[in-house]
Every structure is written in C-alpha cells, then in structure tokens.
C-alpha cells in the first residue's frame, strides 16, 4: 500500500532549512498496523507532515508511493481523497464552522472527486449517528464548532470520529495518546480496533508503549535522528519501555546490525 524509499526532507526555517528525515525506508501493506516510536526530535511528526502534504517541508530525495502513485506530487486534499488520513497531534480549532458542516463538506468533496453525487442529508445523518457510537461521541457535540471548547480527550476522540466517517485506507495517528487519561485512551483505541480491517492500514506514532497495549501493532519501528534504526514486533516496544531511548543512542551501531 505504502512504500517509502530513502526519504530525505527538510523543514523550512528562517535560516534556510534543517534536515530532519535522513533517508527513511518503510513498507506498509494492507491490514497492517505499524508503530513508530522514538525520542522527541527524531522526525516522527515530520514524517506525518510530509506524508500528508503540510506546507513548510521540502523533500530533497527519495520517493513515496501510495498504491503505486507518487504521493508527493499531490495536494493535501488529493492525498485525502486517495485514502490517507492524519489524526492530528494538535487538532485545530475552527470557530464558526460546525463539525457537521465540516464533515458534510469533506464527505461530499471526496465523493465529488470520484464522480459520485452528494450524500443525502438522511444518509449522512445516519452515518454520523452510527460512527459517533464507535468513539462514544455525543451527537450534540457535532453541532458545535470544530474542536472549539473541546477537552483534550474530546479533540482526540473527534479525530478518530472523523477517521471513521472518511474511512481511509491508510491512517496516521500522530501521538493520539498524548494528553489522554486511561479511560479516553481505551475509548480511542477501541474505536481504532473496530475500524481496523484487512483492507486498511495504520501508522501509530507514539512515545509510549501504553497505547500499544490497546492497539496491538504488527510491527514496531524505532526512529532515531531521521531514520528507522530498528524494526521488530511488539516486543520491541516493551524493550524500549524498559531501557528507554538512551539505550537506542548508546547502542546505535549494535542495533543497526
């Protein structure tokens, strides 16, 4: 589904740009869940930004193919329509735009790009009700402005609710567990597990092993200084939890073997 080859990318800064991704390789197939762990500044969120087309990043080398298509050529909305979804680390508040109107516009713009007619209001409301249950969202919240006045947990649940509504092929969860208490974490993870299928895939970016108790990954990758330095199964996450990221720094050469 996704193939990242030798990806090198800079973030634009006032001083001209700083290299963050330094030759990253990753392959993801349908039905898989990949966890990416790593210390602050290792490039996890930059990877999410580059994959979804956020402004301010410059790809210097390498390629990203999504179902065979060159992803890096596409505008953010085109990537979304191809089936890529980012659950934001910091969901954006948009005063004046209701959740419902936002999602209706999104669903219908995606349908339009596929030559389909807009969804009827009845069908749309039905879908909203059904998906809201997945992450235990009060439908009343949907009349409110996007993320405005939402608690940290509500914002993250709203991200997963949007994910459910748009039914993407590849979802990137960028530190979805940060700022969540254990109850909210369970709700979010439950939602993801219900959506998980053999046809879709997830990239779960996190600092902590905790989330991976609930969303069990098929692969765990350790990211360090812009590269994936080690990959393994879920036990790697436990190992990291025990030894910390210092262990990665100290045993870099050993790990790479």
């Amino acid at each position: 589904m996704l193939e990242i080859k030798n990806l090198k990318a800079k973030v634009e800064t006032d001083e001209g740009g700083k290299e963050i991704l330094k030759g990253l390789n990753l392959q993801i197939k349908a039905g898989e869940v990949h966890a990416i762990m790593g210390p602050n500044g290792s490039g996890k969120s930059t990877l999410a930004s580059v994959l979804t087309g956020r402004e301010g990043y410059e790809v210097e080398e390498g390629e990203v193919l999504f179902e065979g298509k060159n992803l890096l050529e596409l505008a953010p909305e085109e990537r979304a329509r191809e089936g890529i979804f980012l659950a934001f680390q910091y969901p954006v508040e948009i005063p004046g735009v209701s959740n419902t109107n936002f999602l209706k516009t999104a669903v219908n713009d995606i349908r339009k790009s596929k030559g389909e007619d807009p969804m009827s209001s009845v069908d749309f409301l039905k879908m909203i009700k059904e998906k809201a249950k997945l992450v235990d969202i009060d439908p009343q919240m949907l009349g409110r402005y996007v993320n405005v006045g939402f608690s940290g947990g509500e914002k993250k649940r709203n991200e997963i609710f949007q994910l459910a509504m748009l039914n993407p092929k590849l979802s990137i969860l960028d530190e979805t567990d940060s700022g969540l208490d254990i109850d909210a974490l369970k709700i979010v993870a439950d939602g993801v597990n219900k959506i998980r299928s053999k046809d879709n895939a997830f990239i779960v970016i996190t600092h902590y092993q905790r989330l991976l108790n609930y969303i069990v990954p098929d692969f765990v990758h350790v990211m360090y200084e812009g590269k994936i330095v080690k990959s393994g199964d879920k036990s790697l996450a436990l190992h990291l939890e025990e030894y910390g990221y210092d262990w990665v720094a100290e045993h870099l050469e050993e790990i790479a073997k």
Binding site: E77, I94, D109
Partner: peptide, 10 residues
C-alpha cells in the same frame, strides 16, 4: 491545512 487534509478542496 486541517480542512484540506480531510479531502476538502482549497
């Protein structure tokens, strides 16, 4: 960016 990342046209 938030809106566009959900498939909404510019």
């Amino acid at each position: 960016f938030y809106l566009r990342s959900r498939g909404i046209s510019e």
